[in-house]
Design a protein around this nucleic acid. Structure first.
Lengths: 349, 349
DNA sequence: TTGTACGCGTTATCAG
DNA sequence: CTGATAACGCGTACAA
């Protein structure tokens, strides 16, 4: 049978094509395509009406796949995340996905599951699907992966963490301001011996940045404040307990407090304090980054710096979209302010 | 300029095509395609070697987009989730995404953000990208959306929640067994007046199932046990507090406990108990579904039923893949067992 | 203004 | 066993 007669198509319910619409309206594919893309600008009123009606009646919408193949653009954005289980990651993901959809894009997700060898494969797989750009929330040590992306001329926006030396757009918390806000709060609450607890730095920009600012803050107040840093290895609770004991010992009579670099480490400190039989706030202060849902519920409540995660996701997408529209600017840093939520873990009484 | 001479292509670094490989190996596109798909079965040793070498040297991998266009298969799976912020959802997502990738598929994510009007749009958008099947973790009240999916002959696997009357594959927790395990634990811990606290049912299968089993369990022990159910409206903390007060009042001298239908509601109960100045375990027992990371840290620790979220994700994907391979079976239910983690919130001493 | 014809990268059919 | 060729659904020069 010759492939088609103008009438009588659409057996079953296969997706309709632009040709179906053209037949229905009695015009050519090209005309329909023009109507769809240039919005009926260059069409006669009569034709426009017919095509418009046909599209509506048939409920037609073009195939993004075919469009992608033709124009090399897919209206797809690749989102690579070190660990979806991380509450910060999901929160950002949420904002990003929403902003994406509002701009007519879809998100293609790749979770590294903390296996950072996958980073290259991630951007490779994603770009084979023609994603137009990348949002990366990873350790970002893999320069090769970034190079791949750059070579494909696909824009990249980093979230939270600066990646190597690459000059890329970055959106995240204003770590410097946030750490200062946090430390100042601890000082005002009378804590005098401070410990900055973090996951292993591993070259992660935001962790190093926070640690650096913390050290500066302490160094600027040599007479009233002492401070040190502790990198907690995953699983090694004993070392963490020891570090906390050392903190109180070093503090002597002075009140001491921990500044936890993120929610994961804050959770571990809370657990350690419980193991040691201490009371948060009184025996030891604790202030964490990120403000997880459980923060109000542990002991007297965990004081925390909350990040504007939704905004971070939104800004990242907007930043990417601007690049896609061809804006050529030097790499930007968009740093958003955090918010301090004071709870019982930083009240000594 | 005529589009191509056999040599001298690949200006810049545009992605390479099957034609490039063919040129490089001195064969036709068709041959390369065959090598790629049937794995060199029907090729002469000489040709196979040449093609194989060319593919490797050039680092070629075919374009999923073009493949999708040609065969109508995209190696894409659509994942629709009611709310990514829900810890259960992410956990399942994690397992699913991994299983997907291991099977050579990619995940396309659509988050409803609890806006269930989007459900139809979700499956519409996703199927326009030719996803081969759907994993749905939604309220599932939108029969129309499901009908859309069915009409496209795309397989659907439901997670956790049965959807309307549709006969579809389902994978989730064995709610019946889990509720009985939970309730039995409460009984053994001497609690005699029970309250089942849940988010509004809204026709959500798993919530109704859990409530039903709870009521049966109580009804089967009329002489030793009393129980009731409470639907907590989002934000209405006053009503929740009142319900808890009523629980203790009704219990009189008997110990009472709350069975929380998921982590969200468990969190709210913990907060309410704190507001009321009670102590978990002693003044009121609490056992929750889901086992969030913070469970060990609130008060004496929150007892909880943990769900095998990774497995749920994996099974869902495998189930979907089997359907994609054309298995025609009646709809299955895969019910996985939960695990009871006993902590302080169900210890009266 | 509208239609015709071609190509995006693949795979399937059909000759050879 | 291999190569030419026609689709898949769409956008767009080019021609009318």
């Amino acid at each position: 049978m010759p492939p088609s007669s103008p009438t009588a198509r659409r057996a079953g319910t296969a997706a309709l094509t632009i040709q179906d619409v053209a037949n229905h309206a009695g015009v050519s594919k090209a005309t329909v395509s023009r109507f769809l893309n240039r919005g009926g600008e260059q069409l006669s009123a009569d034709i426009e009406a017919r095509v418009s009606a046909a599209v509506r009646e048939l409920g037609y919408s073009p195939s993004p796949m075919a469009q992608a193949l033709k124009r090399g653009k897919s209206r797809l954005i690749g989102l690579v995340v070190a660990d979806v289980s991380n509450s910060f990651s999901v929160a950002v993901l949420r904002g990003a996905e929403k902003a994406c959809r509002e701009a007519g894009y879809m998100v293609m997700l790749f979770n590294l599951g903390n296996d950072h060898v996958l980073e290259r494969e991630a951007i490779r797989a994603l770009s084979s699907y023609q994603v137009e750009g990348f949002i990366l929330h990873t350790l970002g040590n893999d320069a090769a992966a970034l190079a791949d992306a750059a070579r494909l001329h696909k824009p990249v926006v980093l979230i939270d963490r600066r990646s190597g030396d690459a000059q890329l757009d970055l959106v995240g918390l204003d770590n410097d301001a946030a750490v200062r806000m946090a430390a100042e709060h601890l000082v005002e609450a009378d804590y005098r011996q401070l410990l900055f607890a973090t996951e292993p730095m591993k070259g992660v920009g935001s962790r190093e940045q926070r640690a650096r600012t913390f050290r500066s803050f302490v160094a600027e107040r040599p007479d009233m404040l002492a401070g040190s840093t502790f990198e907690a290895q995953p699983g090694d609770d004993a070392a963490l307990d020891a570090a906390l004991r050392a903190l109180r010992r070093d503090a002597g009579a002075k009140p001491c407090a921990v500044l936890a670099a993120n929610a994961v480490i804050a959770l571990r400190v809370v657990a350690a304090v419980a193991r040691l039989g201490w009371t948060l706030g009184r025996d030891i202060g604790l202030l964490g980054f990120d403000d997880p849902e459980w923060a109000p519920l542990v002991g007297p409540g965990l004081s925390a710096i909350s990040q504007p995660t939704d905004d971070i996701g939104r800004f990242a997408i907007n930043c990417l979209l601007e690049r896609l529209r061809g804006i050529t600017l030097p790499p930007r840093q968009i740093l958003l302010p955090g918010t301090l939520n004071v709870r019982g873990s930083t009240r000594r009484s």
